[in-house]
Design a binder for these strands. Structure first.
Lengths: 237, 237
DNA sequence: CGGGCCCTTGACGTTAGTCAAAGAGCGTGG
DNA sequence: CCACGCTCTTTGACTAACGTCAAGGGCCCG
């Protein structure tokens, strides 16, 4: 069985460093538990910790002044969050809330800061992790700007499935309200968008999605949205 | 007058480091010129350089397989790009194209890498710059996910204007096709969305926008989109 | 003066959000 | 064991937001 330490060593922030560089910091961490729906930290709160998820799911969100929330990331085991603010001694740019029963390793911002100061290897690893985070955000932006809801779902499902070809069944890792938020739409729209994938061989039953042909779905996910209706017309003719 | 060196010292990546840490790298840089519409590097190309913009404007974009482009950033003097890929010896995650006559300082990826290895202070500065970039992306995501086109324009205009209250005139820094792409919409939609701001005291003439009341515009930009029509109804009654 | 580009406008179709309602699953308490 | 309330999810009807296609005006530059 995997111990908190083992998991933490695999986290983004530490993945690129030898064990002995990460251990001193991990050893200072405290295991923390959060129930479903519990707030881990608030947006704008002074950053006090870096968190590494041991198990469970956590969402990061931005709250608008008007009260609507935009989900920025959905994280699970071996992911970390809060490091950006913790490193610079700023306040958190997003709120964090656990969406399942969750265990985390909480590492004090001050410990993190002194470790970075003393260990260039660790600093480079954090830099690398930040760049990875950057790429994820860019991917999300690209999806939002140039794909329809149905295409974003297709991309999401494809990200869950390991196969690169043929048939595949995936389990939706969290509830549809959260998936909708993550993909930038409302639950109602998600529900309808799922149904639009049916012609492309996708069936949803409860929290299981079966993909008849991964290739076909990939093609749909990458397709030019403006051609979708005419393509559909051609296809069905 | 400001020399390339002076500008480079103010760049994101170097802002947080003492001059003598940045100078060795800057000294190795080469000034490069690019005409309007020139490609600086392609998405997927092996990263060879970090660039610091001396003057002009550069857009970073993602190209979908279907050919549509999503603009991820629009940068100008003192901004830098390409460092993420250069640091890790990967390929560029985005393409870069100059949208005006542009001068840049080009720094070799290998030089960058060795400097980081040797100088922890520089590494921390890059980390900090990456985090800043992250925040910008998160802000863009928030805008896209929970604001209408008109609200995103309002946010964009407010970002251009220094005043925090009262009246203000801003000059649009680049053409409307690019603004539209940056805000995640088509030029036609931008044009119409501009007109929607008229009731809130915004007038566009050519490339000049005059804001009658910054406060009013801020209020509109933060407003819950779902309330906009009823609010408008109330307002006009 | 002609051509190209940027920008705008109109007409129309698609996509997604809103509001309302109802069905499905699930745990609790009677 | 069943009724109840709760949350998650789906559906329908309607509206708003945005993209597409097409056309036209203004402007710069050769």
């Amino acid at each position: 069985m995997t111990s908190p330490t083992d998991i933490a060593l695999q986290a983004q922030v530490f993945r690129a460093v030898p064990k002995d560089h990460a251990m001193p910091l991990i050893a200072k961490g405290v295991v923390k538990e959060a129930g479903r729906g519990a707030s881990i930290h608030l947006q704008g709160e002074r950053a006090h910790s870096l968190y590494i998820i041991l198990d469970g799911w956590v969402k990061l969100y931005r709250m608008s002044p008007c009260g609507s929330e935009a989900i920025v990331a959905v994280l699970t085991s071996e992911d970390n969050f809060g490091e950006a603010a913790a490193i610079r001694g700023e306040s958190y740019a997003t709120g964090a809330e656990s969406v399942t029963e969750t265990h985390m390793l909480q590492i004090d911002a001050h410990d993190l800061w002194t470790s970075i100061e003393q260990d260039p290897v660790l600093c480079r690893s954090l830099l690398s992790a930040a760049i990875t985070g950057n790429r994820a955000l860019v991917h999300q932006l690209e999806q939002l700007k140039s794909h329809t809801g149905a295409q974003r779902i297709a991309d999401f499902l494809l990200g869950l499935c390991k196969e690169e070809t043929g048939e595949c069944t995936v389990v939706l890792p969290y509830d549809k309200v959260l998936i909708a938020g993550w993909l930038g739409m409302k639950p109602e729209s998600l529900s309808r968008a799922f149904r639009r994938l049916a012609p492309y061989g996708v069936k949803i039953v409860k929290d299981r999605a079966t993909i008849q042909s991964v290739e076909r779905l990939v093609e749909f996910a990458d397709e030019d949205p403006s051609l979708s209706w005419s393509a559909k017309t051609c296809r069905t003719n």
